[in-house]
Amino acid sequence: MDYSFKKEVEEGPSKHLQQEAEVKTHNFQYCFNRLKIFSVSCKTSMTVLEALNTSQMFRNEKDKKKNKQKEILVQRCKEGVPTAAVKTDFPCCLIETDEILYIDFIQKDENSCTNRTTADPSLRKTSMPETLVTFRVKKEGGQKVRLLLKSKALRRRVQYVCVYAFKGEKIKTALKHDGRFINDIFRKHCALSDELKHEWSNPVDNLDGKAFQLVVLSDKNQPDSQDDLTPVTTEPNVASDADVAETASSSQNPINTSEQEKKHDGNTKSTNPSIKWYATKPIADSKEILGILRDQFPVLLKQLKQREKLKNKSDVQKFFRAEYGKSVENFLKVKKVKQLMKLSDSVCQIRKGESALGTGFLLFDRYILTNAHVIGEPTDG
């Protein structure tokens, strides 16, 4: 057997397809402030940010002091009209030849999650345009929805955001993985609306190239599906190469409901985007032990009232609050002890010859922080 043919058979077709995708090149154009237009040539496997970073002009603009702590805003544009904002992990192979990308820098919003990647980088790099779907979502929702986007700066600058997803993926999963939409909408029964209403559970396959408005069909909390709990990776999307710590804080509730938070499966869900929630499952064969504990509770409660001389339910609640407070104090004490133990590693003794002069703190290398009286007059010791 010819060696070259044998090698091709051993490697398999998938490896060649991946290599072919990485070798293919793609061209697109971009501009700052809609002035001079620049051209970029890149591999089809690259993201928009990776492709832009190959341009010296883009790197120069990105590294300016005024842009270093800002987020990059990328808008698709046709015939001089912006159509939608894309994330920096948007596959550049999906940008059409007659489009120009408008590049700008906007204020970084602590509530924003625009640094979340839509897909696993390895999966994204081996994907072809024919396996992907893009669609636009209007920044304002329909009835019962005020705001959809987390970033205030993004809401002020764009009318639509462009979402990309893999064929076969559910609409809810695609929007959740996009990362720019508030968490509240995923607790409701929603749909994307044009002439028809496309519910959360529908696949994205029929949405390609279309524009939609998000509408709420029902305010009732929806159970999390397994797809919604898929972990999502993150990567930087700020103008500078340095990582910026992002403090997650709760945004205003954009859904017009009277309740700010509702309970689901006995757990209160937070609006904090950094918290990942997982579906709870009942403990197997736990009904018997649960019945025993419930039967014991009235007796234990009666004994507690007699022992602590408690008269009613409010007294019992106050008792448990006080006991809980004591346990919290104990934990804080343990935390302080641990901190002291960690800091004590840097405490050192300063000696001259065989005699100890005092103590100090070892900062780094051979630099020590101590009081002036320990050293006294400078010596060569």
Rank of each mutant, 00 (worst) to 15 (best):
T25F: 03
P223W: 05
D228I: 06
A165G: 04
G12N: 09
R146M: 03
E308Y: 09
H177M: 01
D265N: 15
E261M: 08
E20N: 04
F320R: 06
E130K: 12
V74I: 13
C92V: 09
L340K: 07
I255Y: 05
S4A: 04
H373K: 10
N27F: 06
C113E: 13
K68R: 11
E246N: 11
L52V: 00
D89C: 09
P129A: 13
E377G: 07
V86Y: 02
Q213S: 01
A21H: 01
A51M: 00
K313Q: 12
G168C: 04
F5K: 13
N330L: 01
G266R: 11
K335S: 00
Q260S: 09
D365Y: 14
K352D: 13
L123Y: 07
K167H: 04
L52P: 01
E329K: 12
L207F: 02
N33E: 12
V133C: 03
D365T: 15
Y278R: 08
V374N: 15
K188A: 06
L123M: 04
D315V: 09
L369D: 07
V299M: 07
I255S: 06
E20P: 00
M341V: 05
Q339I: 14
K68P: 00
K7T: 08
E71P: 00
H373Q: 09
V244S: 07
S45C: 09
V74N: 01
G376A: 08
C93I: 05
Q226H: 12
K15V: 07
I171R: 02
V9Q: 14
V40T: 13
S258M: 08
Q303C: 03
V347N: 02
Q226G: 01
S240V: 01
E99H: 06
M46Q: 04
G381T: 15
D205V: 11
R351Q: 14
K36S: 10
V48M: 10
S270R: 07
N267E: 15
C162H: 00
D178N: 06
K338G: 12
A153Y: 00
K302T: 10
T234I: 05
Y160H: 15
T359Y: 12
E377Y: 12
P121A: 07
D285Y: 10
D315S: 13
V299F: 08
V40I: 15
I292N: 00
A174E: 00
A153W: 03
R180Y: 02
D178Y: 04
P82E: 02
C348M: 10
H264V: 10
Q18H: 06
Q260R: 06
K176M: 11
V334L: 11
L52T: 01
K62A: 11
S122F: 11
R351C: 09
E377S: 15
F5H: 07
R136G: 10
N67D: 09
N60V: 11
E10N: 05
K269C: 11
T118Q: 09
K36R: 14
T370D: 08
N267T: 15
F212A: 05
A119D: 06
